[in-house]
Amino acid sequence: MPDQETVHPDALVERIFQDKIDQEVKIEPKDWMPDAYRKTNIRQISQHAHSEIVGMLPEGNWITRAPSLKRKAILLAKVQDEAGHGLYLYSAAETLGTTREQTINDLHSGKAKYSSIFNYPTPSWADMGAIGWLVDGAAILNQVMLCRTSYGPYARAMVRICKEESFHQRQGFEILWVLSKGTDEQKAMCQESINRWWWPSLMMFGPHDSASTNSEQSMLWKIKRKSNDELRQNFVDMCAEQVKVLGMTLPDPNLKWNAETKHYDFGEINWDEFWNVVKGNGPCNKERVAARKKAWEEGEWVREAAAAYAAKREELVD
């Protein structure tokens, strides 16, 4: 009969696990971890990967019609980076024991989500600028935080991604800056694009902390290290200043410097729109998933042929 001091083995390993986290020791694939920690990481990393992959689509729309060879080369490089970022993240997810195929199937079946921002269309060239400045800018805030996330392979993938991502934001801002110095039509195009992307970009940080009930667990596990509202406020503070350089405005009449809080106050997000897009009713949800499925299905013969070729070569060697 165990005495009362005896600690259940599960409780003991869980305590060791939490101690490591508290001491900023990274968790590595072969280390013991609670099932819920594993699940949360698989979910978050794979959704992050899907966001990179689906994120190629709105910009891919402009590769063939970029206004110059220079812009086309830049856009190609950026979209290729996003494919790379998706791959870093898919492999990080796989270190937790999930398979690539299952992860991709979950995207195609709609079981897995990706960032809703990519369900908005890109009808104008200025959108390539606004996406770089605002969408990548918002993503970078999240990603910088995630460089310090507690799961080692995820943190390492994020460090690599952050190094590459800053060119994405800078090229976007430069596109807008050039337009803002252009003709009246170009200036109008710049402002119109900022107007369309501003609010969806703010939504990228997710619901208010008050509505994001159990994310304390993720904070405790240091998967996530800053709250949605905290990151969103950082973003607003940065953009409110940067937009002045462009000589443009952000479409929010309530945007105002608050000398007391030393932050910008801003208006309320349209949460109905947010939830509607999350639920699949955004302007491009169906189109995006259909494009991914089509690419996957049409690549089937390539995957099969390469596997058959590899098998045949192995036979020859034997």
Binding site: A36, R43, S115, M204, N214
Partner: peptide, 27 residues
Amino acid sequence: SLIKKYYYGDIPEDKSGGADIPSNNVR
């Protein structure tokens, strides 16, 4: 799961994927 709802940015947990604990039958 210890977590009912967890958000990475705007991605809600509800009905989201990747939550299955891995099995040994690698595809």
